[in-house]
Design a protein around this nucleic acid. Structure first.
Length: 465
DNA sequence: AGTGCCGGGAC
DNA sequence: GTCCCGGCACT
């Protein structure tokens, strides 16, 4: 558990860094008003300030960082030639344009810095940004809660593109939540990283489906793409292989939204930029004009977990799956009771324990104690517990039970380990509890009244500690 | 010594 | 799968 909570700091580099070029810097080297360097999952962050603005994105983890630059609406690659930490400037070479441009780093949400490598310093986040993030998190949670699991859960392949959500990056915030609550800290990631964290399963669905389901006009805010970060650490059930996924990016100035489906992007362009007027033919052509395909390389979760080796990049955009994000689970609404969800969010939530007890669960899983505290893992634990112990009757729950049936969610055993209380130090014998056991209560002479486990000299199931 | 229960064996 | 128990850890 503790290990899960401790998050690992990502190395710092351009990756995950938003750089910008303010109009007037002393040295006047800056060529464009604004560029962004973002994590792969931050597609929607791209918001060129002008038509001509450039947006370096998705730097590769390779030594000489490669970034994607949006130049006049076209993507081209650039190489980070040098980075000057004191001034936070980055020099980018765009071979295709034979351009050298300089950029300035701008602070970004923490989550974006998770998988960064080591060449560039990422400045701390500002406080007001944090507030914004808080709001975003809240909004995200609400949004998630209002969605059905099916709609909410996109196909596995999309898990790697929590782009738009990351745009403003609520995730980092949730990360903070699970941490200590200091959401203003910054650049500081101690993440549930190395270990694979539990993640809710998702019904498979076609991208089209989910994206269309989500893209009802008013709500067309790019959420289609975010499918979910939760999948990032999705374990075995879905074996993802490296593949290239086609996304659609809005080329409208100051937009840069990336969606999964053509329909979605068209609708986005139409509704957000062209106006939803009736003369469709013209509009239709314009829609086509204002989006472009981008290829997104997907990597298996396992690789992401280990923060992958910095191999060279072939695809323009690399969706670098973030490390397991516990916070992502936070927003796993279908299995969460709202109150619980909010408690997970709220750091002031009181601690308590759930006891799920089943007399004959012995040998399978005696009991599950789930610390309900500011820890995000609460929800995980519950999902895990219920999914692994389908036979448990809610009625037997001692202190807390959910009326909502849990969706069948296959989980890994390791998740259970994470979720279960540290009652049994691995490899050691369980510390004897205070509670009376059948033997004491009934005495040897009434052995027949003992619980089965006691009779078998197993851990007592009747008087749990 | 008494107790709790893990690990493993017998069926 | 159930049932039992040797033996260890802990009180």
């Amino acid at each position: 558990m503790a290990t899960v909570l401790s998050r690992r700091l990502g190395k710092r580099s351009l990756l995950g860094t938003r750089v910008s070029a303010p109009g007037a810097l002393a040295d006047g080297v800056l060529a464009a008003p604004q560029i962004h360097t973002v994590l792969p999952d931050d597609l929607s962050c791209l918001q060129p300030a002008e038509e001509s603005s450039q947006a370096p994105r998705f730097p590769s983890p390779s030594r000489r960082q490669q970034v994607l630059v949006t130049y006049n609406g076209q993507d081209c690659t650039g190489l980070v030639e040098q980075h000057n930490p004191p001034s936070d400037k980055v020099k980018v070479l765009q071979p295709e344009q034979s351009l050298h441009t300089c950029w300035r780093l701008q602070d970004v949400p923490e989550v974006l810095q998770r998988s960064v490598s080591d060449s560039i310093d990422v400045p701390k986040r500002k406080a007001d940004a944090a507030v914004e993030m808080d709001e975003m998190v809240a909004a995200m949670v609400l949004t998630s809660l209002s969605c059905s699991p099916v709609v909410q859960s996109p196909p596995a392949s999309e898990s790697s593109i929590p782009s738009s959500r990351a745009a403003c990056d609520p995730w980092k915030e949730s990360g903070d939540v699970s941490d200590s609550g200091s959401s203003t800290t910054s650049g500081h990631w101690s993440g549930g990283s190395d270990i694979s964290t539990p993640s809710p399963p998702h019904p498979e669905g076609s991208p089209k489906h989910s994206s269309e389901a989500l893209s009802s006009p008013p709500a067309d805010d790019g959420f289609e793409t975010d499918s979910d970060p939760f999948l990032l650490d999705e374990p075995a059930p879905r074996k993802r292989k490296n593949s290239v996924k086609v996304m659609y990016k809005c080329l409208w100035p100051n937009c840069g939204k990336v969606l999964r489906s053509i329909v979605g992007i068209k609708r986005h362009v139409k509704t957000q930029h062209l106006g939803d007027s009736a003369d469709s033919d013209q509009r239709k052509r314009e829609e086509d004009f204002y989006y472009t395909e981008v290829q997104v390389k997907e990597e298996p979760a396992s690789e992401a977990t280990t923060n992958t080796s910095p191999t060279s990049v072939s695809a323009p955009i690399i969706i670098h799956q973030a490390l397991a994000k516990p916070e992502a689970l936070l927003v796993e609404p279908p299995v969460l009771e709202p109150a619980l969800a909010s408690s997970a969010l709220s750091q002031s939530a009181p601690s308590s324990f759930w006891h799920i007890q089943a007399d004959h669960a012995y040998q399978a899983l005696p009991s599950i104690q789930i610390p309900v505290s500011p820890h995000i893992f609460t929800s995980i634990s519950w999902a895990t517990a219920t999914s692994t112990l389908p036979s448990l009757s809610p009625v037997r729950s001692r202190s807390l039970s959910f009326s909502e049936p849990q969706p069948p969610t296959p989980m890994l055993k390791s998740h259970l380990i994470l979720a279960s209380p540290p009652r049994v130090p691995l490899g050691t014998r369980k510390v004897r509890g205070e509670a009376k056991k059948c033997r004491k209560v009934y005495g040897i002479e009434h052995r027949d009244q003992w619980c089965t486990a006691c009779r078998w000299k197993k851990a007592c199931q009747r008087f749990l500690d």
